[in-house]
Design a binder for these strands. Structure first.
Lengths: 200, 200, 200, 200
DNA sequence: CATGAATGAGGGTTCATTCAT
DNA sequence: CATGAATGAACCCTCATTCAT
């Protein structure tokens, strides 16, 4: 029956290599040869597992997005209360964890750039963001229902918080000195309080 | 004797062309030939006025940044009160004006990506951001002095507000549907209120 | 599995093509495209087998030098006596053989020019010349030992003979009419006689 | 009647600049802009005084050659005896003077390369060389007439001596360590003795 | 599945030359 | 005479992609 397929493994290898190389060199700067070398594969093999370079980018976006969402949901599931969940979500994004994967962070910024001119990237990028606003909106609605929050426009509030998170990502990756050490999560919580009322 | 220098004019032409082309195709995707064509110049002339493509990018960053700051300062000077200034700053960034120059917005996002891997771009990008946090911090301090605001960490608060603005830029450029129409400025003001106290 | 490497073959092809094209057009005048065409290869392939054009030049120098030295040594090994060896060395360089490979001769002249401004070429060029002076000095020393020659400065004498050979190369390639037909080897032997004494 | 022409002066400036730049960068590597800068002139002006880059090269060859021959003749005129003249000629080329103008030396080597593929350069280069062999042959003939030399083929001998001089130039410029300090002139005189007989 | 040689279009950049001023 | 902006072809090199093995 031939050898067992290792396609999934190879694809993961390649995706990981793209993320690594791209974080340092950008998407255009990450040549297929570079990616292949980083994945310890031959250049030809990359095109055996992916139709073209762009497909790798989309797969990487998919991967980053899925991993991020899974980790987020795992975090949220530890907290039953809306407020605690909100704080957990903020901490998840702006706590020490943000530094844990600088390559993913860099790729995220770069993906926002690619989203500007590529419909598929944009769609997938937007979907990934919307998954976070969905979580945020759900938390807010639950908080409103429980009286913990006051908010008559959960989507707008969720969107605002997402903007703050995304903005902090950009600052962290490109202008870190502008963020006073350790202030990001705390400030965001205060801003959330301004948005959602209740006790801070 | 000799032809009068028109370098300044040509450089402006080229910078404008880069911004236009880059907004559609990204920085790497904007070939010098494309830029030259958009500027209605010959390819060789681009390198007569700029040492290399990268210099055009830096000049464009400089230009965008300077123009933005000048316009911001003009806006701020119309308002004497800290709270009014804060709102003006927010409106300036998130009001209708944001849509006024979608190419500049796209370039801004792309520049954040370039900043990731290029020291010069990063330094200039960071400086541009810091000029805005400087304005924000000054407004906040003035507000604290006048009793309008309560804040014991103006730089952190300024940084948080900047993050929100930058994040909204990213969302606006890449995932517009996630921002409920017209909510950005209002939400940001509420968040600022959470951060700075006083009356909304 | 995979295609068998033919790098050595391709490199030889490319080196040969460079020598041929360079002899007619000079080094700068030999575009990579020209070389590729002369080698009947695609332009891209040249850079697959050589990092850059300069590497081809160095490889060509290496090749010319190695081939020349091997042929010289083969010639010398046919003669046991110092004087016969000396004459064989002179004949090898200035006999009919010199005309046998006009392209190599032209390249040699051109390489001396490149050596002027390129350290690597210069080092390799010098080493190639020193291999000939080494042979010459060894022959002279052997002749002195056997009483065939009288010379108290073999390196200087070797260097002088090398100069004459090199000079004849230049004249042969650029001002052939100045060399009376067939006089080069004979004159050089006479000069060697003046240098080394003994019977002509 | 308008300003006095400074064409001659400008041409000399440009020729000198080419020699200087070419010595460091080669002929192809010496861009017209480089030459203009070295001559402290504008690029356009170079093409006012020379039809094209190649004309500058020819003019430089002419200049180098003329200067060299004039200096040589001045030297020779100091000595009435053939043997003294021969030694003066050798010393002139291989004495300390050779180091006096390394740029001219480098250009001379480079010109031999250009002569390979350019008919005009070759013709002028050959003529310059023939002027030296003419002097040499004349000296030899005079020596033969006076009984100082014995030689039945003055042109061949002259050619051989020229080859040695030219070869020493190449070695001096590209492989100086191969020439034992101060040996060049002495060795050449001994070789001349082998060629021309008489007392050394 | 895997290799790595091969392709050829296109990239940024240089440059001899021209020309309006 | 002089300037320096302008041109456009050509250069070296990179690279996504294909394909014989």
């Amino acid at each position: 029956m031939g050898r067992p397929s290792n396609t999934a493994e190879r694809r993961a290898q390649i995706i990981g290599a793209l993320v690594r190389v791209m974080a340092r060199q950008g998407y255009d700067g990450a040549s297929v040869a570079d990616v292949a070398k980083a994945a310890k594969l031959s250049p030809g093999l990359v095109h055996y597992h992916f139709q073209n370079k762009h497909e790798i980018l989309l797969a990487a976006l998919e991967e980053l997005s899925a991993r991020h969402l899974a980790a987020l949901d795992a975090r949220l599931s530890e907290h039953p209360e809306p407020r605690a969940q909100l704080h957990a979500l903020i901490d998840f994004h702006l706590g020490l964890g943000a530094d844990a994967d600088p390559e993913a962070l860099a790729c995220w910024i770069l993906l926002s750039g690619e989203a500007l001119r590529d419909g598929k990237v944009r769609a997938r990028f937007e979907r990934s963001l919307s998954q976070v606003t969905d979580r945020l909106a759900a938390i807010i609605r639950a908080g409103v229902a429980s009286g913990a929050f006051a908010c008559n426009a959960p989507p707008a509030a969720a969107s605002a918080l997402l903007a703050t998170l995304q903005g902090y990502f950009v600052l962290a990756a490109t202008a870190r000195p502008l963020i006073p050490k350790g202030s990001a999560a705390a400030m965001t919580k205060r801003m959330a309080h301004g948005l959602l009322g209740g006790e801070p």
